[in-house]
């Protein structure tokens, strides 16, 4: 995929982006490097992977990280139940065969020497069979593929999203290093599984903890900031069809105003701006006014302390007086 095709693909998904994002994404794909995206919550980090998957025409393979996530949930797990069933079935089959051999033995009691030879051969064959069955228990048939293994085992180019990597434990982050650098994973019973087709890997982080330098070194890096008023206006227009132009502009300006207010701790995200614009549309607003903004402030500010701080600071009345009149 060249730069212009990628641009068209992203535009086709109605994704609003800048040249910096496009170039970084293109470089990551071309160099075959995972892309680490950082930024505040709700700036559209996850959306990059979704749009990329849509552009590639593949389903997004997603691994949501959380504290305590381990390789059993991320990479693979042996299907214990299936293994047990297989053992039970094999036991029944082999006991059936052994029973048959005993009956044959009774009918040919006259030839003890022959029986000893047959019995010795049968034991040898059974031991060999047992080893093969044991090996079979740890084959791909009994492997439950989790997102990471699924992504690298695929025959076509997949898009793998490892979302909110900062929420996973440091041990898991270290475990990911092999996958991110060599696109392979080691399964003790099976050996090393190499990617047939290198997946496009996107990692996102809200920066709640510092990621290791080792992980950063293996990735191309993109930092997404809160959008400018113009960009957010474009996003509102792209995502909410039929939104009145003035309302979209007011909402974008109000969102920027809220984010620039140092007293507000939880800054509103783009998704919240979109929800707010939809709520205002539902109230038949053509422009933002103080009353409707105050009624719907809960879409933008999600804790009481921030709402109080904002109202003490003049609230939407001050914003409208300063910027919309």
């Amino acid at each position: 995929m060249d730069l212009s095709t990628l641009r068209k693909a992203l535009e086709g998904e109605r994704y609003v982006f800048d040249d910096n994002l496009l170039t970084t994404l293109y470089i990551a794909i071309k160099l075959g490097k995972p892309l680490l995206i950082e930024g505040a919550a709700g700036v559209g980090k996850t959306e990059v992977a979704k749009v990329l998957a849509a552009a590639y025409g593949v389903e997004l393979t997603r691994l949501q990280c959380y504290g305590g996530l381990d390789e059993a949930k991320a990479l693979y797990e042996w299907n214990y139940q299936k293994q047990l069933l297989s053992i039970q079935l094999n036991l029944k089959q082999s006991s059936g065969k052994t029973g048959g051999a005993e009956t044959d033995g009774k009918t040919s009691q006259g030839n003890a020497a022959d029986q000893a030879v047959v019995s010795g051969d049968a034991n040898g064959r059974e031991a060999e069979c047992g080893d093969k069955r044991l090996e079979g228990l740890f084959s791909r048939d009994f492997l439950l593929e989790r997102p990471l293994l699924k992504a690298i085992s695929s025959d076509r180019e997949e898009v793998l999203l490892i979302d909110e990597i900062d929420k996973a434990d440091e041990e898991f982050e270290a475990f990911l290093l092999e996958l991110l650098s060599d696109f392979q994973v080691s399964i003790p019973e099976l050996g090393t599984v190499k990617a047939k087709m290198r997946p496009v890997i996107v990692l996102t982080s809200n920066n709640t903890r510092q990621l290791s330098d080792a992980l950063r070194r293996r990735c191309a890096y993109l930092f997404i900031e809160y959008p400018t008023i113009e960009k957010e206006y474009a996003i509102i227009n792209a995502k909410i069809p039929g939104v009145p132009a003035k309302l979209a502009a007011d909402v974008a300006a109000a969102a920027a105003y809220l984010r620039n207010n140092e007293k507000i701790f939880k800054k509103p995200s783009i998704a919240e701006t979109l929800d707010w614009a939809s709520a205002l549309m539902a109230l038949d607003q053509k422009r933002l006014d103080e009353e409707s903004a105050a009624k719907t402030v809960g879409f933008m500010l999600k804790n009481q302390e921030d709402i109080l701080e904002f109202s003490e600071d003049g609230g939407f009345g001050r914003f409208i007086a300063e910027q919309l009149t």
Binding site: T23, I27, L36, E38, Y221, F223
Partner: peptide
């Protein structure tokens, strides 16, 4: 990365280099 994007456009060069060397 510069081999892929070329060196004619300053903004693109800056973004390509930043993606590879500036990681926070």
């Amino acid at each position: 990365a510069l081999v892929f994007v070329g060196v004619l456009d300053r903004t693109t060069v800056k973004a390509a280099l930043a993606a590879c060397v500036a990681k926070s």
